[in-house]
Amino acid sequence: MTKRSRLRFGASPIVTHAVLIAFSLLMFYPVLWWIFASFKSTPELALPTLWPKEWLWRNYPDGWNALPKYTFTFFYLNSFKLNIATTVLHVLSASLVAFGFARLTFPLKNALFSLLLLTIMLPSQVTLIPQYAMFHSLNWINTYLPFIVPAAMGGAFFIFLLVQFIRGIPRELDESAKIDGCSWLGIYWRIVLPLTRPALVTVTIFSFIWGWDDYFGPLIYLNSVDKYTVPLALRMFIDTQSAVAWGQLLAMSLVSVLPPVAIFFLAQKHFVEGIATTGLKG
């Protein structure tokens, strides 16, 4: 605290806060407008004002039931099922692999780790078509397997994040466990994994949120409505109606970002730390 307050130089804190408040409001205004707009009628949506003249609460139930055959409940269940599965797999696999890279030594380890880092930078378009062809020939199109199977490999970014974290855990604990005859699996499970919990929370958050927002994967791999996730359902909302019911659409869009936002508020600290570690220690 003292260190930071010493850093305060130049303009007075009041000016700093004034600029920050103005800027935050500017950045946040579209979201604020969005919240109120979800209660507006279509003609009112053209106005930058926040408060609706007339509150159209029914935008929500009407939007929820607007799509033929299924309500949004169904698409939310799909999204949750899929993302919980991929998130659990990401956490399990990424932590196993990260333990291997951070604690064990074996032939070719450094070369393999460099490859892993390279794949973080690899544009996904290069693997897209053969992967699609592979999943197509395995009859995995229109199932959740094209999401679940790749999640079981851990995800290079998550592995990298966890490796950085595990490297920071003192080795004394696992060395003494080794002397006591604990196996590597035991050290991973009983010693390193519990200490890695903060980073595992970060991976859980990112995996869930990115999976939740993913649009491209579902777009190409899912083609029947009964498999659709929430983003595809929103897209269908735009497509099926000749005159878009903007109030309802904005209401449903707003609901769709609630799960990520709720997670963000519950685990803000992990979030910020997760982003900062991957960016800094790389």
Binding site: L104, L115, L116
Partner: peptide, 25 residues
């Protein structure tokens, strides 16, 4: 190496995925 074989077992989820879902494609 402290785990010449176990190391590969630990990284195998990624390694198999890398070979089949990235390198080969």
């Amino acid at each position: 190496y402290n785990a010449p074989f176990a190391g590969f077992l630990f990284i195998s989820p990624w390694l198999i995925g890398f070979l089949l879902l990235q390198l080969w494609p």
